[in-house]
Simulated scan of single mutants.
Amino acid sequence: MGRLEGLGVRVSVVGCDVADRGAVAGLLGDLVGRGERLRAVVHAAGVAQLTPLGEVGVGEVEEVLRAKVGGAVVLDELTAGLDLDAFVVFSSIAGVWGSAGQVGYAAANAFVDGLVVSRRGRGLVGTSVAWGPWAEAGMAVGVAGEQLSRRGLPGMAPELAVAALQRALDGGEGQVVVADVRWDRFV
Rank of each mutant, 00 (worst) to 15 (best):
L124I: 11
A67W: 01
G54Q: 11
L82F: 14
G145M: 07
G54K: 05
A86H: 12
V42M: 08
V61T: 08
G71Y: 00
Y105G: 06
G101P: 15
V14A: 11
V69G: 00
M139Q: 06
I93P: 01
E62M: 04
G46I: 08
G81W: 15
R120T: 10
G145Q: 05
K68L: 03
L27G: 07
P52L: 10
R66V: 02
V56H: 14
R39K: 02
V56F: 04
S99K: 14
P154S: 06
G142D: 07
D113K: 00
A72M: 02
A130Y: 11
V69H: 01
S149I: 06
W131V: 08
W134A: 02
L27H: 09
D85E: 11
W134S: 05
Y105T: 03
A144M: 15
G29V: 15
L82H: 08
V14W: 13
V61Q: 07
R39M: 07
V42P: 07
G15D: 08
V143N: 11
G22A: 12
A19Y: 06
D76R: 06
R122Q: 13
A140T: 15
P52N: 14
E62N: 05
L75A: 04
S149Q: 15
V141I: 10
G121M: 07
F87A: 05
V88E: 04
A72Q: 02
P52G: 10
G95V: 01
D85Y: 01
F87W: 13
E146H: 13
D76V: 01
V11I: 05
R120A: 06
V41Q: 05
V96N: 05
G71H: 01
L53G: 08
S99G: 13
T79D: 14
A44I: 04
V69F: 02
G98H: 15
